[in-house]
Structures are given as C-alpha cells and as structure tokens.
Amino acid sequence: MSALLEVRGASKRFGGVVANEKISISVRAGEIVGLIGPNGSGKTTLFNSIAGTHQIDGGAIAFDGAEISRLRTVDIARLGLIRTYQTTRVFKQMTCVANLLAAAPAFGGGTPALLARPERAERARADEFLFFVGLADKRGMVAGELSFGQQKLLEFAMALMRRPRLLLLDEPTAGINPTLINALMDRMRRANAELGVTLLVIEHNMAVIMNLARRIYCLAHGELLAEGTPEDIRADPRVLDAYLGAR
C-alpha cells in the first residue's frame, strides 16, 4: 500500500538557520510513527511544513497521493491532516465542550452547516471524547482554567473530534502528570486502533515513544539521522551521540 504521508527532501531555512535539510519520511495508513531528536533539531519545523504553517523552501509533501506543500493550513486540515502544538493551543475562553464542538468536522461543510446548531450526534461525540481523555467532569469549565496537562489532553480530544486521518502530535506527554502518561499512551493506541487514526508523534520521553511507535525517525541538526524500529534506534550509536552531544 502506498504511503498516507510522503515527505520528500523537504528543506526549510530561517535566515541563516537550516531548520530542515532535505528530509524524507513516509507514514503508511494505520501506523504509529515516532519522530525524535534533540531540542532544536527541527522536529516542530517539519510539522509546520507538513501542516502548511509555512511553505517549504524545497522538496515535496504528499498526503494520500496529492501534493499539499502549496496548500494553506485550512485546506490541509480539511483533507483530514490535523496537528497539535508543542505549546498547547486551545480556545481559552470557551468551555471544554465548546472547544470540542468548535473542532467538529461540520465546519468544513459550507454556509448552511455554519448556520445550523451542532447536531445531537455531534454533541454526543464531544462528550464521548471528553470522557475518552478523562475530562468529562470539566465539561462546562472554561478551558483557560485547566492545568497545562489537562489542556494538552483537551487539545488531543479536539484533534480526534475533527476525525483526522493523520494526526501530528507535538510532544503529547510533555507536562502531563507522570501517573497519567500510561493512560494517555493507551488513548493514543486506541485512537489508532479503534478510530483508525494514523499517528506521527514527536516525543521526548524515550520510554513512551519506544513503547508506542513501531517505526521511528530521528532528526539531528535539521537532518534525518536515522530511521528504524525502536530496537534499531536504541542500538544506533549515532542517535546516542546526537542526544549526548546536543547539550
């Protein structure tokens, strides 16, 4: 089967800083793929390139076989490619349930959809996802009053609400209470298995990503350093060097 996401030789510079240099990765439908690398190695930049936050300087990005590197964020999102942010972005003055409803796929449906109330099924789904990430009791609470970790969970739920085909998660466990990390990993696996969401996950917590992903890409200094199974990556001396040499 061909790849759902195919990045070929994507490069991105910021002034003199080469944030991504000819990076090629590919993610097949149904996979959970990891993306690791020391701080500043260009992981978030790659996400931004894929999601259309900025345009790449060179290379190509295909989603489900169609070139998307020139599309805008909104249009890429409508194709079912959704991302979350490292810094966590939710609608802070809206209630949790409103955050989810605002993420409903119906917003892609034109003016009549905009002028309709969220449907009963949509509202039920919003409640399900709140329950799914353990925020059911925070339903009517304003999102800005949640803790950072809870906001991360909410953002994850919003992304799922959007019915993504591919979900890019930028450090989903950062700032999450360690006791909750296992639960979150379980949710990511279930999203993948039960909802059929393909995941590309940036992760700093090695234990988490080794456990979660079946394939991992490692970036260093903006270049693709290694690729392989968790075992390959763990055994790769270059990866260890990159992390040790980073600081």
């Binding site: 936050t53 909104v74 999102a77 959704i82 972005r89 939710v90 003055q93 993420a103 917003f107």
Partner: peptide, 14 residues
C-alpha cells in the same frame, strides 16, 4: 469565539 481565542488554531482545525 474560536477566532477570538486563537485564530491560527481555528484554521489548523479547518
């Protein structure tokens, strides 16, 4: 309201 709170995020959700 979504635009008020975070317009870029709203776009990223489509």
């Amino acid at each position: 309201n979504a635009i008020r709170d975070d317009e870029d995020k709203a776009e990223a959700l489509g």
